[in-house]
Design a protein around this nucleic acid. Structure first.
Lengths: 237, 237
DNA sequence: TACGCTGTTTACATTCAGTTACAAAATAAA
DNA sequence: TTTATTTTGTAACTGAATGTAAACAGCGTA
């Protein structure tokens, strides 16, 4: 069986959140957030297949949360709305919501809709040669699909194509010494010879971008006589 | 002359409906319905080439009618909407409407649009392929059937034929590195050789149209030595 | 301390992608 | 048809990413 799909529930009402979690967790992995701010960080850290978003959030309302969300991700969203007003529905759909449910929420209905939306999306993706993994380490997230590295602060660290490929191999083999041969093989698909220094130079360039003090690297350490090691824990999703 | 095409007018406002009928019946066969419920039965009984749908229906609104309609049929729809809001337009188009007109309706305009939509569809029919997919990403919607790209703001971004084909291939393979060979194969149906720069130029042209900062692309990224990658999430329908 | 070994850094060369301008081809208009 | 307009391909140039070579630094050992 493939690992379960993950649903992120965003609601400030803890009672409702709990209710939803209990409904969904039989079939899905459930994550929770109690405001909009938490969403973005969660999306960066974990693989999320669906978001259930209450638009009646305190502070900035659900619609603006929705809008920000859509800028960074196309993750499907089901909105919970208090009013059954057409307006809300229209705005919601305009912003890219996939479905909406009016309060009071019938748990059975919620479950049904979650399933429907996810099923609809499954059908659309038969061609999954796509990479979706994400690796987190030392305050960074490396997104394989988007080929981008971002700091937890949210800002993106531009990587060249070669830097990305190298960092990817390292992050996929944490705490494991990699020799130059392996690294070159994995990134450039060619063999290494003792005069080839390109890996070393690339390592240097990477360190400049991700190490606090590139001269005393904490993340990419040298294994003298052998190669390099990604000396940090990585959580992949 | 072939038998005339049939237009179904759905509106609860009898006066407006009559006006529309009189405008259209010179050129088309006109059927009428005064609420959403009647639509489905009519569609089952008669051949309908086009539906003119007023979204300001009583009871359940035009959008939900639209949605139900799309579940059972791909018949083209022109929506009549009270507000000229972008919101409505976007939702309408998202739900699969082919065009929309704001009230008050100019009969001459209505006739023109009916003709346009029907002509557009006629042209498409002989080419058989009923492509109706739509891909959403980063605030854009790429409509495969209409071969057009629009921003969420509602405005359309004109694409040349080659640009569209390329963007389509990319959007159909998000988060997957595509080499020039594949891209050229898919867009121009010919093989690539190392001196062929046409894909690169085309990529540049596309970036200018869809990237915020074409020099630091976020959507179409370069994979040096290999090709390009559509580095963003796509939701397809 | 001097020497050898290995990794780091810098500078520079090379390769590859981005850009532009223009030619060729295709399409639309007259 | 001819003519205009748009789209596409090509070649030349620019700049960025990468490879290469050489100087340099750290470390262990004789």
């Amino acid at each position: 069986m493939p690992s379960r799909q993950t649903v992120l529930v965003v609601d400030d009402d803890e009672l409702l959140r709990t209710l939803i979690r209990e409904t969904l967790q039989e079939n899905f992995k459930v994550l929770e957030a109690d405001d909009g701010a938490e969403i973005e960080s969660t999306l960066k850290e974990k693989r999320v297949d669906l978001v259930v978003l209450d638009v009646t959030l305190p502070g900035d309302d659900g619609f603006s949360v929705m809008r920000r969300l859509r800028k960074q991700s196309q993750v499907p969203v089901i909105m919970l709305t208090a009013k059954s007003e057409v307006v809300d529905r229209v705005v919601g759909l305009e912003l890219g919501a996939d479905d909406y449910i009016c309060k009071p929420v019938e748990m059975r209905e919620l479950l049904a809709r979650v399933r429907t939306v996810l099923r609809r999306l499954d059908n659309r993706r038969p061609s999954s040669a796509a990479e979706t993994a994400r690796h987190r380490f030392n305050g960074f997230t490396l997104d394989i699909g988007k080929r981008q590295l971002s700091a937890d602060s949210g800002c993106e660290i531009p990587l060249t194509s070669g830097e990305f490929d190298l960092l990817r191999v390292l992050a996929e083999h944490p705490n494991e010494t990699m020799n130059r041969d392996d690294l070159l093989e994995a990134t450039r698909d060619r063999d290494w010879n003792p005069f080839d220094r390109s890996i070393d130079v690339l390592i240097g360039r990477l360190r400049k971008k991700i190490e606090d003090d590139p001269k005393n690297p904490e993340i990419i350490k040298t294994v003298r006589g052998t190669g390099y090691i990604f000396a940090t824990d990585v959580s992949s999703s």
